[in-house]
Amino acid sequence: MKAVITVLGSDRVGIIAHVTNILAKVNVNILDISQTIMDKIFTMVMLVDLKEANTPFAEISKALDAAGQELGVSIRIQHEDIFNSMHRI
């Protein structure tokens, strides 16, 4: 299964390092990363593959959420189908 990770908040050193570190630990492969400033908010979007993940989805989600709180940004992981279904016919 593929998922989209989004990070929203104010930019600071170490956000990507922190997130990728968590993903490496749970064996989640990163397929694509893009980052931009949208409406003055730092926005990072990451497409990941969870096929080989060694940890259940809910726990990965919790770990990312906790990291977000530590970094003062909002981090979420969602199945990519929610975006595909909403924006693609």
């Binding site: 929203l8 949208m38 979007v45 497409l47 909002s74 975006f83 924006h87």
Partner: peptide
């Protein structure tokens, strides 16, 4: 690949 603007639009709908 999904466009980041579309992704953020969805997240805004859910969040705000």
């Amino acid at each position: 690949m999904l466009n980041p603007f579309e992704i953020i639009e969805t997240i805004k709908m859910l969040d705000k």
